[in-house]
């Protein structure tokens, strides 16, 4: 490991984050708070108007040529929408093989073998390589997107709401896959999500974002058990708990007491 912060970002409104090698930083916030924008700046898919991004000690925004090529190999992004994140006109084998093809890393046969290995690794069958995206369910497409991101053996993956559109039972499968792969390969993650339940179970560190600013950050357990900021507390409080507890009874009491309000028509 590199033993120093892998990467520091300072975006236009003074956002500062860093991800330690092999760990997961979760970026949490409501929609429109700027999570995706920050993620895209880190991946150099957008250019911030100011600030710096360092990856493995190198300035990402200044990189070009071979240095940029290396950055593109080492940093991958997985997006939310499993339906628009795969090109409908290309087979998934081609899609997964894109990275090595673009970088001219290996001959065609080797790429085909790699694609089959990756498909197996993410829980699909090697013969799926010749199919088109529309033949797969949302969960399977997210597996394909993961395989695609892994093809270049990256060190750092930005997952932007990568499991948000999946059903609960499928979401856990995909999270387990991501966590296993992280353990196997010592990957670092920037995990962007608005789902605090998921974040608690994948993150090492959490940064809470509101209106383009980081309002609080810290180790996952501290953020969840001892939040400092009112906004963090409000967010945590608002999450519906899937257990019968205090809030349910509160709710019933609250609702019964409201039955005195006058009908509206």
């Amino acid at each position: 490991m590199l033993g120093r912060p892998l990467k520091v970002v300072r975006a236009v409104d003074g956002v500062d984050i860093s991800v330690r090698p092999g760990s997961t930083l979760a970026l949490v916030g409501e929609s429109g708070s700027g999570k995706s924008t920050l993620g895209r700046c880190v991946a150099r898919l957008d250019t911030p108007t100011g600030g710096t991004v360092h990856f493995s000690g190198k300035d990402v925004l200044a990189a070009h040529g071979a240095a940029l090529g290396q950055f593109r190999r080492e940093v991958q992004t997985i997006f939310q929408d499993p339906f628009s994140s795969l090109n409908p006109r290309r087979t998934i084998g081609d899609a997964i093989g894109d990275g090595p093809t673009i970088h001219g890393l290996m001959p065609k046969d080797a790429i085909r073998d790699l694609v089959q290995q990756l498909l197996t690794r993410v829980g699909l069958r090697p013969d799926h390589a010749d199919r088109y995206p529309h033949e797969f369910s949302g969960g399977q497409r997210q597996r394909i997107a993961i395989a695609r991101a892994l093809a270049l053996a990256p060190k750092f993956i930005i997952a932007d709401e990568a499991v948000s559109s999946l059903d609960v039972s499928i979401r856990a499968q995909i999270l387990n896959l991501l966590l296993d792969i992280q353990a196997e390969r010592g990957l670092s993650f920037l995990f962007i999500s608005h789902d605090l339940g998921v974040v608690r179970h994948v993150a090492d560190d959490v940064a809470i974002m509101q209106a383009g600013k980081i309002v609080e950050r810290g180790p996952v357990d501290q953020i969840f058990t001892d939040p400092r900021e009112a906004y963090t507390k409000a967010l945590l409080h608002a999450v519906p708990r899937a257990t019968l507890g205090r809030r349910h009874r509160d709710g019933v009491v609250a609702r019964t007491s409201m039955s005195t309000t006058r009908p509206i028509s």
């Binding site: 609960v168 039972s169 499928i170 979401r171 856990a172 499968q173 999270l175 387990n176 966590l179 296993d180 353990a183 789902d195 605090l196 339940g197 998921v198 608690r200 179970h201 994948v202 993150a203 996952v220 357990d221 969840f224 945590l236 999450v239 708990r241 899937a242 257990t243």
Partner: peptide, 17 residues
């Protein structure tokens, strides 16, 4: 399979799916 916001992360233990 609903991740519990109030339970600490159990490292190395897969989420129920």
């Amino acid at each position: 399979s609903v991740p519990d916001v109030d339970a600490p992360r159990k490292r190395g233990v897969a989420l129920a799916a």
